[in-house]
C-alpha cells in the first residue's frame, strides 16, 4: 500500500462524515418512536375506555349502575353492574381455590423435593399447560368437566360458574407454580442447610424457612393469578353462559364482565346505543381492576423482597 493510513485519522474522518453522523443521530430517534408506541397504546386504551365509558356514565344514573338488575336488551333496559362483578368474583374465587393449593404444593415439590433432573423434565411439561389457548380450556370445561360435575352434583345447570372456575384454576396452576418456584429457588441454600443442621425435615424446612423467605414472590404470584382469572374471557364465555342474574349459587349460569363484553360485541349492539357504551364502562372497570392487581404484585415484590 502506497498511502499510509493513520487510524486516528480514519476514525476522525468517519466521525466527521456527515452521512454517518446524521445516521447516528437519526437512528435513536426512530427507536425512541417505537418505544413510545407502548406508551401510546396505554394512553389509547385509557382514552377509548374513558371516552365511551363517560358517555355511558353520563346517561345512566349511578343508582341503576349499582343495582343488581342487568337487562340490556329488554324494552326497558337496565344496566346494573353488580351481577357481572359478582360473577367475576365468584369464578375467580373458585379458580384461586384450585390454583393456589395445587400451584403452591407443586412449586414446593419442584423446588424442595424433586431432583434436578426431574425438575428439568417436569417444569417444561407444566409450562406446556400455560401455552394452551384459553379457547381450548373453554371447550374442555364445557364438553368434559361440566358433564362430569353434572353426574356428581344433581341440579347443576349445563352452563354454570363452577366448571369454568375449576378449569380457570387449572389454567393458572402453571403460572402460580412457576412464579412461586422461582421465588423459592432464589432462597439461598445456606438458609436451608442451617435448618437441616438443626435436624429439620424437608417439610419443616419448606414451611418454616423457604416459604417465609420467599413469601413476597409467592404472594405476588397469587395476585397475578387473581388478575389473570379476572381478565380471563373465553373459558367463562363458553362454560358459564350468559345469564345475567345476581346469585351466589355456583351451580347456576352467570355472566362475568369479560363474558359480557364478548357476548355484546358479537351480538348486534351497534355503535351509539347505550348497550355499546356499556361495553366500555365494563371494560374500564375491568382494566382498572387488573391494573391495580398488577401494580400491587409489583409493589409486593419490590417492597418486601429480602435480599440475601
Amino acid at each position: 500500500m502506497d498511502k499510509s493510513m493513520n487510524v486516528r485519522e480514519v476514525i476522525k474522518d468517519n466521525f466527521n462524515n456527515k452521512r454517518h453522523r446524521g445516521l447516528e443521530k437519526f437512528i435513536p430517534k426512530i427507536f425512541l418512536l417505537a418505544a413510545s408506541l407502548s406508551v401510546v397504546t396505554t394512553v389509547g386504551i385509557v382514552c377509548t375506555l374513558l371516552f365511551d365509558a363517560f358517555k355511558f356514565f353520563s346517561r345512566v344514573p349511578l343508582r341503576e349502575i349499582f343495582s343488581t338488575k342487568l337487562a340490556p336488551l329488554s324494552a326497558n333496559p337496565s344496566f346494573g353492574i353488580l351481577p357481572l362483578i359478582n360473577a367475576t368474583m365468584i369464578t375467580s374465587l373458585i379458580a384461586m381455590c384450585v390454583a393456589i393449593p395445587i400451584g403452591l404444593t407443586a412449586a414446593l415439590y419442584l423446588s424442595e423435593f424433586a431432583s434436578d433432573g426431574l425438575r428439568r423434565i417436569l417444569k417444561p411439561i407444566m409450562e406446556l399447560l400455560a401455552g394452551i389457548p384459553t379457547i381450548v380450556y373453554g371447550f374442555f370445561a364445557y364438553s368434559f368437566v361440566t358433564p362430569i360435575l353434572m353426574k356428581l352434583i344433581p341440579g347443576l345447570e349445563a352452563k354454570n360458574a363452577l366448571s369454568p372456575g375449576i378449569v380457570m384454576g387449572i389454567m393458572i396452576i402453571p403460572m402460580v407454580a412457576s412464579l412461586s418456584e422461582d421465588a423459592m429457588n432464589s432462597v439461598p441454600n445456606a438458609m436451608r442447610e442451617g435448618a437441616f443442621a438443626l435436624g429439620s425435615t424437608k417439610l419443616e424446612v419448606a414451611f418454616k424457612v423457604v416459604i417465609p423467605a420467599a413469601f413476597s414472590g409467592i404472594m405476588a404470584s397469587f395476585v397475578l393469578g387473581i388478575s389473570r382469572a379476572v381478565g380471563e374471557t373465553m373459558i367463562v364465555a363458553i362454560a358459564s353462559g350468559s345469564s345475567k342474574i345476581f346469585t351466589f349459587d355456583i351451580t347456576r349460569s352467570m355472566q362475568t364482565m369479560t363474558a359480557y363484553i364478548v357476548e355484546f360485541t358479537s351480538g348486534d349492539a351497534g355503535s351509539g346505543t347505550l348497550g355499546y357504551y356499556s361495553l366500555y364502562a365494563v371494560g374500564l372497570i375491568l382494566f382498572v381492576f387488573t391494573l391495580l392487581m398488577n401494580l400491587l404484585a409489583q409493589y409486593i415484590t419490590r417492597k418486601y423482597r429480602e435480599e440475601y
Binding site: 407502548s38 397504546t41 381478565g231 363484553i261 387488573t290 398488577n294
Partner: peptide, 27 residues
C-alpha cells in the same frame, strides 16, 4: 416509566385490547 408501562400492558386482559382494536382500528 416505559418498562413499568410495558409490564403493565402485558397484564391487561385481551378483551380490553379487543375494545381498543374495535375503537381505533375498526371504527
Amino acid at each position: 416509566f416505559i418498562k413499568t408501562n410495558i409490564s403493565n400492558l402485558a397484564g391487561v386482559p385481551s378483551v380490553i385490547f379487543g375494545l381498543l382494536g374495535l375503537t381505533v382500528f375498526g371504527r
